[in-house]
Nucleic acid binder design. Structure first.
Length: 677
RNA sequence: UGCGGGGUGGAGCAAUGGUAGCUCGUUGGGCUCAUAACCCAAAGGUUACAGGUUCGAAUCCUGUCCCCGCUACCA
């Protein structure tokens, strides 16, 4: 590998509209922190930068919903997240924010530079404008009727009921969520970054990185490049963000994806006057730690900006992780389905390392992983307590019992002693190899292997038996056991910094550099160690049940909220209703539509005729069980072709909060063709 | 549907052409210094499925199924 003079580690800027949860930690901050601490211990010149990402439409929406200003919203989460990271032991060199002056300057400068170089394409396009509020409307600020499912409160970018992504212009009866008025189309001017122009350069660069990068990252990039890149707008009509630094650009700000990664540069600037060395010297190795949702921005878009800027280095690696689920369900900020870091810190005081351990051991490195409280408990009790904590405790207690805490002299060693001592540097090597490839799970396992080695050594040599007959031999054994403890305190530090620190206190040692881990002379004879305490405590079933109950309560609440959320639609007359011709019919045949996950082709005897209806219910019903069922059919719906099959009507279904579907059927058998009214 | 990632003993993962391995759990044994912790041993896998290439396939090729992300469809 190329020799680098210094390292620049970046962690994805968390979006300041919510607290940090275990998914963020497992995917980004735990690995980046382990990696940074590892480099520091190895004596490398390294900085780790992060900060709050504070711009963008979702924050303005959240502010509006809560009756706050965007500034108040981001202040709240910036403080909360900054403090939580600190308490958790994520050792950023700086945790900045994109709403501060340095960032405004940096982002404006970079925009200006690209503008002056003529990199941008300027385009004027029509967009919705709210005349009452005198404001252009981002897609999120427009509500209207979804053209697909008739949901009346679909947003301009997506209908949350049917999941379809939309353009604001697709909505029927659009209205502004700011003033409620009907928006009009008006021309607006924006700047676009011509990604297509950089594609050849990106292709070459990524092919070059192919061997070192993770498969998921390379695959994503390749797929984007193969599909062909489009110019992307770098500005928005909004009053929250970095103003576009040009004449005649009032009311325009930098689009958040352009502005956010520049936050890495601003944070570095704020941290050190030496920032240009970190961003412009090819001797710097830059690593972006991110989640898989961010791959395109860090591997395509931001490198394009840096490349267009001319003098910047590009990331050497982007070890993106997959996602972590919680108890088999997707983590969701809006549904409160998460383990929040600030709550964990309060409910499990002093147990930062336990969470760090579990999140690293089960990190979503190659595929999505699942966090369960049961697994959390098992890993704590059977691995941290039973293997790591227990070994350390055994060595310290034995030394105190037999030698009053004095590190005994090592006498003549037998073959087994030597074998164990030789094993130690190997473990360190394995660990280094794994970390160098961003394989954190393997690296952690390797660290634990050292504790396993220690336990086995004690079990095999049985000092508690030998002491009665051969105390000199016990001196050698405990000396070796203590050397293992000392090495453990070094190699576990990147992963479990709090516990490693305590262990060093117990052993009364400090300042051992990484490269000496595995050394057999870390603790000199006659050195006095402390009494020690337990490094880890067992976690009881009650503590786990408490967390599980909390989640159950949240799930119940979500069900109620989503069930209660659907507002009653506006009143209609009987005439409005009577235009619908709903009849009872019987399904005579049902089959899956080829190549469609959700579609069933149904043949229905409506009493009047036999007709075909295509219905999106394949995931809820086995077609074999449907023949003979009576259902309600809207028979005067305009026929429409779905996947080449003409659908002549619509089956009425009832849907609960979880999306479960059941037929609206007559309570008892009635003739086909009967009218529903 | 398209693109990407993934499918390996009960759970989580490793092994990219050469006897399928690790951690946890399970069962049996040992030990008692240690938080009933630790150590040893055993059981447990036709590597999603079906074909093919090869002396040899978890690994390469073809097809199918399933899971995740983005995407499409969901009257």
């Amino acid at each position: 590998m190329k020799k680098f003079r210094r390292h620049l580690i970046t962690s994805a800027l968390p979006y300041a509209n919510g607290p940090i949860h275990i998914g963020h930690l497992a995917g980004v901050y735990v690995p980046s922190d382990i990696y940074t601490r590892y480099l520091r211990l190895r004596g490398k010149e390294v900085i780790h930068v992060c900060g709050s990402d504070e711009h963008g439409v979702p924050i303005t929406i959240k502010a509006r919903q809560e009756g706050l200003t965007p500034r108040q919203v981001v202040d709240r989460y910036h403080e909360l997240n900054k403090t939580s990271f600190e308490k958790f032991g994520i050792s950023f060199d700086i945790y900045s924010r994109t709403s501060n002056a340095t960032h405004y300057e940096t982002a404006s400068e970079i925009f200006k530079k690209l503008y002056d170089k003529g990199e941008f394409i300027e385009k004027t396009t029509p967009q919705y404008y709210d005349e009452e509020a005198q404001h252009f409307l981002a897609d999120r600020y427009i509500q209207g009727t979804c053209p697909h499912c008739s949901n009346e409160s679909a947003y301009g970018d997506q209908c949350e009921k049917c999941g379809t992504s939309l353009n604001a212009t697709d909505l029927i009866n659009p209205r502004s969520t700011i003033s409620g008025s009907t928006p009009v189309m008006r021309d607006t001017r924006h700047w676009f970054l011509p990604l297509d122009k950089y594609a050849p350069f990106l292709k070459k660069w990524i092919e070059d990185k192919k061997k070192e990068w993770k498969a998921n990252v390379y695959g994503q990039c390749k797929s984007w490049l193969d599909q062909g890149l489009q110019p992307r707008a770098v500005s928005r009509d909004l009053d929250w963000g970095v103003p576009v630094p040009l004449e005649n650009a009032t009311g325009k700000v930098l689009y958040v994806w352009f502005d956010a990664p520049i936050g890495y540069i601003s944070a570095t600037k704020e941290l050190t006057p030496d920032w240009e060395n970190y961003w412009k010297d090819p001797g710097t190795r830059m690593i972006h730690f991110i989640g898989k949702d961010n791959i395109v921005f860090h591997c395509i878009v931001f490198p394009s900006v840096l490349h267009a800027g001319g003098s910047y280095i590009l990331p050497d690696n982007v070890p993106a992780n997959e996602f972590m689920n919680l108890e088999n369900n997707k983590i969701s900020t809006s549904r409160n389905w998460a383990v929040w870091l600030h709550e964990y810190l309060e409910e499990f005081p002093g147990k930062q390392d336990v969470l760090r351990y579990v999140l690293c051991a089960n990190a979503p490195e190659t595929k999505d992983s699942d966090f369960t409280w049961k697994d959390f408990q098992t890993r704590n009790n059977n691995e941290l307590v039973a293997i790591y904590g227990n070994f350390v405790n055994r060595a310290i207690v034995l030394t105190n019992n037999y030698f009053e805490g004095n590190v005994p002299e090592r006498g003549e060693m037998n073959e087994y002693d030597l074998k164990v001592l030789e094993e130690m540097p190997k473990i360190r090597q394995n660990l280094e190899n794994s970390l160098d490839q961003f394989r954190f799970r393997d690296a952690l396992k390797e660290a634990m292997n050292l504790a396993r080695l220690g336990n086995k050594y004690l079990a095999d040599t049985e000092p508690w038996i030998i002491f009665k007959t051969d105390p000199n031999r016990v001196q050698t054994i405990l000396n070796i056991a203590l050397q293992i403890c000392a090495s453990l305190s070094v190699i576990t530090e990147p992963f479990l910094p709090h516990s490693a620190g305590r262990l060093k206190q117990f052993l009364n040692i400090s300042g051992i550099p990484w490269d000496r881990a595995g050394d057999r002379e870390l603790i000199p004879p006659r050195h006095v160690i402390g009494k020690g305490e337990l490094l880890f405590a067992k976690i009881t079933d009650q503590e786990i049940d408490r967390q599980l109950n909390k989640l159950i309560a949240i799930r119940k609440m979500n069900e109620k909220v989503s069930a209660g959320l659907l507002p009653v639609k506006k009143n209609i007359s009987y005439e409005d209703f009577s235009v619908l011709d709903i009849r009872i019919g019987t399904i005579t045949k049902a089959e899956k539509v080829a190549k469609a996950k959700k579609l069933l082709k149904l043949t229905i005897d409506t009493g009047l005729d036999s007709r075909t209806v295509v219905s999106g219910i394949a995931e809820h019903f086995d077609p074999l069980t449907l023949a003979g069922r009576q259902v309600s059919v809207l028979v005067n719906l305009e026929p429409r072709k779905i996947r080449g099959i003409e659908s002549q009507g619509m089956i009425l279904m009832a849907e609960d909060a979880e999306g479960k579907l059941v037929f609206v059927s007559p309570g008892e058998k009635i003739a086909n063709g009967s009218v529903v009214k």
